[in-house]
Write a protein that binds this DNA or RNA. Structure first.
Length: 340
DNA sequence: CTTATTTGACCCTA
DNA sequence: TAGGGTCAAATAAG
């Protein structure tokens, strides 16, 4: 392993250790704001994840690194181009719009993406947007070629305020009208974790594992991870012990926590949209997560890029440089109510 | 008044 | 060029 990566790994592990120490203090019953623990666990998980990625990417992927560098360079060029031009306001607006659009698209293309199928059982009339713990704002709906039902597009409500690029698409399945295919893209950076249910919602921690590594589960409740060359597996109960707060994806299919009002609730899309787009009659049941599939096309890019921890490279919202780890530690907590 | 949704236009990619 | 994804003005809802 190269010296720089070795140092980064040590930094990551050291940080994880320190954060764990901090977390320990919050286990005292008189001083344990739940959200503080949650935040710290996120930080710890992030630290160890980075360390694992460093290990995993030891063989280094120079190609994806180059892609990241090219992206960074292009962004710089675009900025310079804008500075030097003298054009009328309307065309400048147009150009800014195009530039911004290109920039956003470039970032989104690199965002992790995964799909879940949410089943709406007979028995419940869906109301309101699919509640997965995050607040979404609908920004589009399209009829998809060859599909019987339109696809709805949602983005994080806090996108403008906090720059959260998370989006999701919801589409009713052609095969089974009770199933909604929900494709998530990008991880939430808006810290809405306080809205998350304990087991039924998608925690960002588990997303990390799903996005950056292959996670599998067989019918014997055995989970195994592919960290490149480093594979290991766990029984479900072991997994829950190791990652207690992160067990949502690995629970039985019939998850009793999927009840309206808690966690994933019935209603795949906003009610007005659903009324006009789809016929909801006949839905009188609850919701259940059917399965979680993964599209990890960007996995390698993310993993490889994180190996260059001391370079200021960002992939979309993902910035793994150590400088930013420090930034996270000094997070102003303006969005965390528990420290005032 | 503020925030969310709708929907046609626009842009990008294959 | 078609199809998918996003933007943003108009509109609706709270």
């Amino acid at each position: 392993m190269e010296l720089m990566e070795h140092n980064s790994l040590i930094s990551e592990l050291t940080q994880g250790k320190e954060l764990a120490l901090q977390l320990r203090t919050h286990f005292h019953p008189s001083s344990s704001p739940e959200q503080a623990c949650l935040f710290l666990t996120e930080m710890i998980q992030s630290s160890f994840e980075k360390a694992l990625l460093l290990l995993n990417s030891n063989s280094s992927n120079s190609k994806t690194h180059q892609i990241a560098l090219l992206d960074a360079q292009e962004e710089g060029e675009e900025e310079q181009e804008e500075e030097g031009e003298e054009v009328d306001e309307s065309s400048a607006k147009k150009k800014r719009k195009i530039s911004r659009s290109r920039d956003v698209l470039k970032k989104r293309k690199l965002l992790p993406r995964w799909t879940e199928e949410i089943k709406v059982c007979n028995g419940t009339a869906p109301e309101g947007p699919l509640n997965d713990g995050y607040s979404w704002r609908k920004y589009g709906q399209k009829d998809i070629h060859g599909a019987n039902f339109p696809r709805c597009y949602y983005r994080c409500t806090h996108r403008n305020v906090r720059g959260c690029l998370a989006t999701k698409q919801v589409q009713k399945s052609d095969n089974d009208p009770n199933i909604f295919e929900v494709t998530y893209r990008g991880r939430h950076t808006c810290n809405q974790s306080s809205n998350l249910g304990s087991t039924s919602s998608i925690s960002s921690q588990n997303q990390i594992y799903e996005e950056t590594n292959q996670i599998h589960q067989n019918p014997n409740s055995e989970i195994w991870f592919d960290f490149g060359d480093n594979n290991f597996n766990l029984k479900t109960e072991d997994f829950n012990q190791v990652f207690p707060p992160f067990s949502f994806s690995y629970e039985p299919i019939m998850d009793p926590t999927f009840i309206p009002g808690e966690g994933l609730t019935a209603a795949a899309v906003s009610s007005p949209a659903s009324d006009t787009a789809w016929d909801w009659s006949g839905y009188d049941g609850g919701l259940q997560r059917v399965q979680s599939s993964e599209q990890s096309a960007v996995t390698e890019i993310i993993s490889a890029t994180t190996s260059v921890t001391n370079s200021p490279i960002c992939i979309g919202e993902w910035d793994f440089s150590l400088d930013n780890i420090d930034f996270d530690q000094n997070f102003p907590f303006d969005s965390l109510d528990f420290i005032s």
